[in-house]
């Protein structure tokens, strides 16, 4: 497998971008809080350039997995390699040469509350590239704020002056500050209204395509999974029990997967996506009839 390539263990120079197949490789991961084991012998590989959705019931350790990958969570056993560099063997604050290659959006945004949005975005730039001129740093910050879909005047606002959705976008702007190759999103659409959530999904997909990102996306949002994820990893029984596209996952026989994707909410999300797909082909009579039929529910059931 590509992950085993010896050349991937080489340190990436700052002027190189990662060209291997698997920016994230997790092998035999075991984590626990005291007696409680969260992950046991968990394996996962994330392909370059994909949006990988991570799903699982509450308490299955989705966020813990993300924290283990970015080196915030001590690991009992196993190995995590990001861009070919071992994260698990390193101290939490050790310089690894990978921290400027990833961006992390935490659930609440985790913006520094004493700094404006623009200054928040400048923090990683100043940390890694203090030699850049102040003007350029400002311009990069402003561009990233705009890129994440915030209005221009949000740059000089403090996080406490923003709504929850705007705070997430500001957190995304900071995550994108260094043009990362890898983006971690922890429930980006949780707590957003459906319109805002759909907009955030589109933003994620556009950014992935424009910037060539690999995205590790933790979510509970079935629409997000159907709409933008290339593959979905399912966490259950302390392991990743399956990694595949949504249609393939739905064919699996695991009870939790069946309940998740084929439950009422899962089917609704699927129908919505099917309708969207059909609407693209309205010139064909079959599709047009199908849309009409689906839009008009049978009499008596409305």
């Amino acid at each position: 497998m590509g992950a085993k390539d010896p050349e991937q263990d080489a340190v990436l120079r700052p002027d190189e971008r990662f060209r291997g197949d698997y920016p994230i490789v997790v092998e035999g991961l075991k984590t626990s809080f005291g007696e409680q084991v969260i992950h046991d012998d968990l394996d996962l590989e994330v392909r370059r350039g994909e949006i990988l959705g991570v799903v699982g019931g509450s308490g299955t350790g989705k966020s813990v997995l993300m924290r283990a990958i970015i080196g915030l969570q001590p690991v009992d056993a196993g190995e995590v390699r990001v861009f070919g560099r071992s994260i698990t063997g390193a101290e939490p604050d050790q310089v690894l040469g990978v921290r400027d290659r990833w961006g992390v959006l935490f659930q609440g945004g985790a913006l520094f509350s004493t700094l404006t949005v623009g200054e928040n975005v400048e923090v990683p730039i100043k940390q890694f590239y203090p030699e850049l001129s102040a003007d350029l740093t400002h311009e990069i910050a402003r561009y990233k704020v705009r890129l994440s879909g915030l209005p221009e005047d949000a740059v000089s606002k403090y996080p406490s002056e923003l709504s929850g959705g705007m705070r997430k976008r500001a957190g995304l702007a900071r995550a994108l500050a260094l043009d990362p190759e890898l983006l971690f999103l922890d429930e980006p659409t949780a707590g957003l209204d459906p319109i805002g959530a759909a907009a955030f999904d589109n933003l994620t997909r556009d950014l992935k395509e424009t910037l060539g990102l690999t995205v590790f996306l933790i979510t509970h949002d079935l629409d997000t999974l159907h709409e933008i994820c290339d593959r979905v990893a399912v966490l259950a029984d302390k392991k990743v029990i399956a990694v595949d596209t949504v249609p393939n996952l739905m064919k699996l026989d695991h009870p939790w997967i069946q309940e998740y994707f084929n439950g009422p909410r899962g089917r609704a999300a699927l129908t919505a996506q099917a309708l969207d797909e059909l609407r693209k082909h309205m010139d064909m009579p079959v599709a047009a009839n199908a849309v009409k039929a689906l839009d008009k529910p049978p009499a008596g059931k409305a």
């Binding site: 700052p14 002027d15 190189e16 730039i125 590239y129 030699e131 850049l132 001129s133």
Partner: peptide, 12 residues
């Protein structure tokens, strides 16, 4: 050469 945030500080 590479035009990346890491490499453009003196050319800018």
């Amino acid at each position: 050469g590479p035009w990346l945030i890491a490499t453009i500080s003196d050319v800018e």
